[in-house]
Nucleic acid binder design. Structure first.
Lengths: 140, 140
DNA sequence: CCTTTATTGCAAGTCTCTTGCAAGTAACAT
DNA sequence: ATGTTACTTGCAAGAGACTTGCAATAAAGG
């Protein structure tokens, strides 16, 4: 179970598993779209979980530090979104410009590009962002 | 000259060429990295051009509306950057995580991907963001 | 159950970007 | 040139995402 794995990561870095961290984790675990901090906050309110928005921000940052959550900056959205990495492989997203629906793209065309970029720019390539926008089937 | 082309675009949309728009354009024209609003503001201050930060934001938005400037959201930067599109072909960037230096990548591996994504997701694919981070030659 | 110390909530602050409005000025007609 | 119109600007204020300081709370281990 995810909670156990994460408890260990927390303990290993001198942190604790708490009621609010469990709530955020369980929400991320059962949600299949990346969520923003305010969406996490709103959903937990609805679920009658007492939590402050500040704590949501602190929690996702802790989970990010542990490498358990990915922070996404979608195309001109002006806010970050978070999704669990646990058990999922590297992927990207497409977001509907009309309704905001986000769908996973289970592909990444960039592995072979890294070497080319490193040769051309002399950079050491680290991370990358690749996000698409478009119109989903319902909004076309 | 760029200013003339842009004057026409402005006029065609009921807008005017002004002292401040000329200043922003000329700065973007002679700068070879994408600039943020506050960088544009700071550089113009240094150049003794009287301009308000609000006007910088409004100006880049006008230029974006006209399709003359691209707005970039680099990886977790928390601010947008702007660069002239005029005369340049579609490209992406890599940014140094240490010093912030931004270099153009004159490539885009995504044309052939669009069809695949549309088939798989039933979305109509519009725009995309692709930005890399890494370590530049000086910061390795 | 107690102690230690991480975590939380609240208030306030920071940063990017936007909006309202009166004053300034570009563009065009007279 | 001068005047008129309406687009632009600057200033003040506001909105939204995210962070920080601090006292109160609550995990975790003894």
């Amino acid at each position: 179970m995810l909670e156990k794995i994460i408890s260990q990561g927390l303990k290993a870095t001198g942190r604790r598993m708490t009621r609010t961290r469990k709530a955020v984790l369980s929400l991320l675990e059962r949600t299949h779209e990346p969520l923003s901090a305010s969406e996490i906050f709103a959903q937990l309110q609805e679920d009658q979980v007492a939590i402050d928005l500040v704590t949501v921000y602190r929690t996702v940052n802790v989970l990010k530090d542990l490498g358990l959550v990915a922070q996404l900056d979608l195309h001109h959205e002006g806010q970050s979104r978070y999704e669990l990495k646990e058990g999922r492989k590297h992927h990207h997203h497409i977001r509907c410009q009309v309704c905001g629906k986000i769908v996973d793209l289970l592909l990444c065309p960039l592995k072979k590009l890294t070497k080319l970029i490193e040769e051309r720019t002399k950079f050491v390539v680290g991370d990358h962002t690749l996000e698409f926008t478009g119109f989903c089937p319902q909004c076309q």
